[in-house]
């Protein structure tokens, strides 16, 4: 993670303290841990059912994760600023339907995706403005917009339904196609993920999101444009929810007024399981993406092992609690370690 060259430390060099190394290791471990859990689960399933990792199996696994990864990436940015966006499910639903309606009317595929993203941006802007200007708790504001957007969606859609038959073939083909086992949609999600992670690490705006989530008061004192950054995080989150709506349409071809209902809770779970701390200021989008991959693969693993899918929700819940418990324990351990270190130096 760090770019410092490992030159043989001369005497003047400040020794890298044990505290730093410990903390670094813990945070890397946090993402590694999810990866290990994921891999173990996959291996066990493969042993139990050798068809699981067929080309189609891998493709399904990735396709299932794609949409959640996208929305979780956007959600992470918001959670890092110590806020939350509960309206992502509604945004996804309405964007998917808007893009579908446009395509059914003979529209162009690229424009349809753009339309979905713009609609998402609009929803994100509304959320961001309410949270940053209104100084109201994000949980309540976005719970409100969750219902408002869903309500508008229901009135607009009514009992109509979009089916794959009404969509252009190229759009549907793109949704299910890919380069051997890797779907195009997954590549889009990966590109967005990598770009977002790079921005968060290497650009001022990204670091400032962490800063204002870590200590809002200090952020204000440091001259960070707090409201503008929060607005940007929500807008980005909305944009990705919109994009996810378009991809949902491409993947399933089937959208009605209930699309994306309750999705926000899955997204928030993925983010938290991925180690993005709900009190803001820490975590990474890679972690969130791994969390999303882990949660969605539970959905595929259980049927492959012949376990009833009624267990999925319970297992997701257990993973969530486990993740929070691990974070809490690790945080306490790190705090004690740092304290001890201070005591030695004091």
């Amino acid at each position: 993670m760090t770019v410092t060259a490992p030159n043989p430390a001369p005497a003047a060099e400040v020794p890298r303290s044990s505290g730093t190394r410990l903390v670094d290791r813990v945070f890397r471990m946090r993402e590694l841990a999810i990866l290990v859990v994921f891999l173990v689960m996959i291996v066990i399933t493969q042993i139990g059912n050798s068809d699981f990792l067929s080309e189609q199996g891998i493709k399904d696994l990735l396709l299932n994760a794609t949409i959640l990864v996208l929305v979780a990436t956007g959600q992470s940015l918001v959670v890092i600023t110590r806020n939350v966006d509960l309206s992502v499910g509604s945004t996804l639903g309405i964007s998917a339907f808007a893009a579908g309606t446009y395509l059914q009317g003979g529209g162009d595929s690229a424009v349809a995706v753009l339309l979905a993203v713009l609609l998402g941006v609009g929803c994100g802007l509304v959320n961001g403005l309410l949270v940053s200007l209104g100084q109201v708790p994000a949980l309540v504001v976005t719970l409100g917009t969750l219902y408002i957007i869903r309500g508008i969606d229901s009135i607009w859609v009514g009992s109509r339904q979009i089916t794959a038959a009404g969509l252009p073939d190229e759009f549907v083909d793109f949704g299910s196609g890919g380069i051997s086992a890797v779907p195009y949609l997954a590549l889009i999600a990966l590109a967005v993920l990598v770009a977002t992670a790079y921005y968060l690490k290497h650009f001022g705006g990204g670091r400032e999101l962490y800063a204002l989530g870590s200590n809002p008061e200090a952020a204000r004192l440091a001259g960070i444009p707090v409201r503008r950054r929060i607005l940007a995080a929500y807008t980005f989150c909305g944009a990705l929810a919109g994009l996810a709506g378009a991809l949902y349409l491409a993947r399933f071809g089937n959208v009605d007024s209930g699309t994306g209902n309750g999705y926000e809770l899955t997204v928030v779970s993925a983010v938290v399981v991925g180690g993005v701390v709900f009190t803001g200021g820490s975590g990474s989008v890679y972690g969130a993406a791994l969390g999303a991959l882990l949660l969605t693969s539970v959905n595929s693993v259980l049927p492959a092992l012949g376990v009833s899918s009624v267990w999925v929700l319970a297992i997701n819940g257990i993973l969530l609690i486990l993740a929070i418990a691990v974070d809490r324990i690790v945080a306490l351990r790190v705090a004690t370690a740092l304290k001890k270190r201070n005591a030695r130096h004091g």
């Binding site: 400040v14 890298r16 303290s17 505290g19 790190v334 705090a335 201070n342």
Partner: peptide
């Protein structure tokens, strides 16, 4: 250490 987090 410049890389140490401020926590603690």
């Amino acid at each position: 250490d410049p890389d140490r987090p401020a926590r603690g």
